[in-house]
Computed example of a mutant assay.
Amino acid sequence: MLKRSASTRSVPTIRPLRRRATGLAMAGTVFALAASVPATAAADRAPAAPAPTAAAGPVSVLKYTAQERRQALAYWTPARMKAVGKSVDLGPTGPLAKPWRGTTLKTVGRLFFVNASGADTWCTATAVKSANRSAVLTAAHCVRRGSSPANTNISMVFVPGYHKGKAPYGAFAVRQAVTPRAWQEDSANDMSALTVDAGENGKKLTSVVGGQAVAFNRPVGGTISSFGYSATRPQLGEQLLRCVGTAKKEHGTQFIPCDMSGGSSGGPWLADFNAATGKGVVVSVNSSLDSLTPTKMYGEVWGATAKKVYDRAQKV
Rank of each mutant, 00 (worst) to 15 (best):
S155H: 08
V136D: 04
A171I: 05
K166N: 13
G161V: 06
P180I: 02
V136N: 02
P180S: 04
R144S: 02
F172H: 10
G170W: 02
A177I: 06
H163A: 05
G170P: 01
Y162Q: 11
S147W: 05
P160G: 06
Q176G: 11
N151M: 12
P180H: 11
V136Q: 06
T179N: 13
R133I: 08
G165K: 06
H141D: 00
D186L: 02
D186N: 14
N132H: 02
A171D: 11
V143H: 00
P149G: 04
E185N: 15
A173D: 00
T152F: 09
V174S: 05
A150W: 03
A177G: 04
P180M: 08
R181H: 11
Y169D: 11
W183R: 12
A135K: 14
G170Q: 04
V178S: 03
I154T: 15
E185T: 15
Q176Y: 05
R145V: 14
P160D: 07
A182Y: 12
V143G: 00
L137V: 14
P168D: 06
V157S: 03
T179G: 08
F158K: 07
A167L: 03
H141R: 04
R144E: 07
Q184V: 08
E185I: 07
M156V: 09
A177N: 07
T152E: 12
A171H: 10
P160A: 07
R175M: 06
A182D: 14
N153V: 01
V159F: 10
G165C: 09
T179Y: 11
V159M: 09
V174F: 12
Q184H: 01
A139H: 00
N132F: 00
V178M: 03
P168K: 10
